[in-house]
Design a binder for these strands. Structure first.
Lengths: 334, 334
DNA sequence: ATTCAATATGTAAGCGCTTACATTATCTTG
DNA sequence: CAAGATAATGTAAGCGCTTACATATTGAAT
């Protein structure tokens, strides 16, 4: 069943059929409804390939993320997909894992599918070494590249980020105001947002005249068990701390477990703050205070900007910053 | 840059270029490497649409899931995507939410993209009312429909499911063997797998001569807070129970919170078992015993079967059942 | 050398659609 | 009601690729 069949059955030319397909105004109401009826009863669906061949756009954007089973990114995928679909766009998903070469490979793969744009979700796509981002800046010459929670200053690359610096700064200030002095910071990886988070933490300490101690800034895999172990060994080796800030809820979960293991009262003896405000934050006892990084807002903003770009609008903001929100639950004092 | 440019630069016909593109054996090694070199240096990438037009296959399968932010489905997406890509297939994702009409709508949308197959992840796609599945059985006439953790007996529809009945039966038996007599069952929704889970639970009680009491089988939203509230109110209204089985880890998390709230010791006074063995199961204190529903195995099996089908192999199993695995942690006695 | 098979390459006809341009039908207006 | 403007429809030329079939080249066997 193709456009010829429909045109034959409807007794019009294929051009007319194509016109009703594309909502052209130059079709009389009579013909339009007739053709539509024929399409309906014959169960016709246009062939996307033939269409793409002619149109040179496929109403599809590629989404890349490092790992869709990370709850944060899983949410991002969900929201992006929802928003795109709302605008009549499909999404093709690629999960790259950590490897840089795989990132590139998948990126090229999506490009070769002639997607209309590319959305990279998560800060893992912007490398510390500028050379490693060349493939992005090159691609941006052809189609818009949208970064969700990552930033790269290059033409054709647009970013929507959460204000991690302010969020961490604010969080640390809250802890200090509530009387905490020895704040540990656990992070899982270094990236665009990672750098900002750390700076926020350090700036807050500095402003309050507290010392910044290297041994209080520790890397740890995103795993509650690992975080707990790390804290136990830190405590055993004589470190003292009365609060733990984290770059991810899963680390904060580990901190709560550590407190339980050592019989520390939360938040009095140990305050804990998560990050991303994921489902995990409501699974511990007491429930985690966390920083909501507004992933939904990031995603809607990203798609909104993308649509403007695809519609040829000028002056689309190259970078949008969205404020985070501290969510007070039970692991911090007010 | 298209196939004509390449053929001109390489001094061969477009047919030859196309042949090396498709790895046809009928090309001399000399020409092949020469053409490849030309492609490389001119940065040529074949146009997927033109290709699809000719080939009538796009090496793409549609994946539908109800909600990618559910950790279970997020994992499924990840594994499916990974396996498909390994076989040279792309995936187009659609998250439908709960609504049946949206399911249908998105389904048709993907169909119209001429995907080579459709994978439906999660048991929410098979409706209790057979009429509501007509759109699936119809579509199955055209392309293979793969169900991950759902079952529908119709030609062209293939299923890979976890043995939920056995899993629940086994879990209940373990609890009974460890001395539990009053086992509550919390489930979040009814579906193909939901029915089997419940039967497993009931059969185990029956075999051990324990009464099946309606008030011990309760529905609850997938939310720790809700589950905790429900249990509190049940306890307050005089229900007694010494173990809680669940259809999802998030409900089990709520049960642990309930135990904490009432000062019950786990697992002695209250045993708790999760389901799906998600990250949540390692976030509580004590950590959740849970049923691993082998989502990775389900996904790899699904894709493996799909490839067979797409390669025209006969006798592909219409239904594959994969055993679950009980994971003993801290909320149950051995 | 001659013939035939096997191998390599080229030619050209689609695949189903969009759209510029040509043509025809319909409406205005003096 | 003729003639020009406008709206509706049709014609046909691509879009970039695959592939059946035709043709040319090579090699082996005689």
């Amino acid at each position: 069943m193709n456009i010829y069949d429909v045109s034959a059955r409807a007794g019009v030319s294929i051009a007319t059929v194509s016109r009703v397909l594309n909502g052209s105004p130059n079709v009389s109401e009579r013909t339009r409804s007739h053709v539509l009826a024929v399409m309906e009863e014959s169960g016709y669906t246009p062939n996307i390939f033939a269409r793409g061949l002619g149109l040179d756009t496929i109403k599809t954007v590629g989404i890349m993320c490092s790992d869709s089973s990370d709850p944060y990114l899983a949410n991002a995928i969900y929201f992006l997909e929802r928003e795109l679909r709302g605008c009549g766009y499909d999404s093709v998903l690629c999960c790259t894992g950590a490897s840089l070469t795989r990132k590139r490979q998948y990126f090229d793969l999506l490009l070769s599918k002639r997607v209309d744009a590319m959305i990279l979700a998560g800060s893992k796509f912007v490398e510390m070494n500028p050379d490693d981002n060349a493939y992005l800046t090159e691609a941006a010459a052809g189609i818009p590249i949208m970064l969700v929670n990552g930033f790269l200053d290059a033409p054709g690359i647009y970013s929507t980020v959460c204000d991690d610096h302010a969020a961490m700064y604010d969080t640390a200030c809250r802890l200090i105001r509530s009387g905490k002095k020895d704040i540990l910071y656990l992070y899982s990886s270094y990236s665009y947002s990672g750098v900002n988070k750390r700076r926020g933490y350090e700036d807050a300490l500095r402003v309050h005249g507290l010392p910044i101690r290297e041994e209080r800034i520790r890397r740890c895999d995103k795993d509650p068990g690992k975080a707990k172990e790390l804290l136990l060994s830190l405590a055993d080796s004589g470190s003292t701390f009365d609060a733990v800030m984290t770059s991810d809820d899963s680390l904060a979960v580990g901190a709560v477990k550590y407190a339980h293991a050592r019989g520390l009262s939360i938040p009095d003896q140990l305050a804990v703050v998560g990050y991303n405000n994921s489902t995990l934050s409501r699974c511990t006892d007491p429930e985690l205070s966390s920083v909501d990084t507004r992933i939904e807002a990031l995603c809607t903003d990203t798609v909104k900007k993308l649509m403007k770009i695809l519609n040829g609008e000028e002056n689309v903001a190259q970078k949008t910053t969205i404020p985070a929100e501290f969510v007070q639950r039970q692991t911090t004092k007010v």
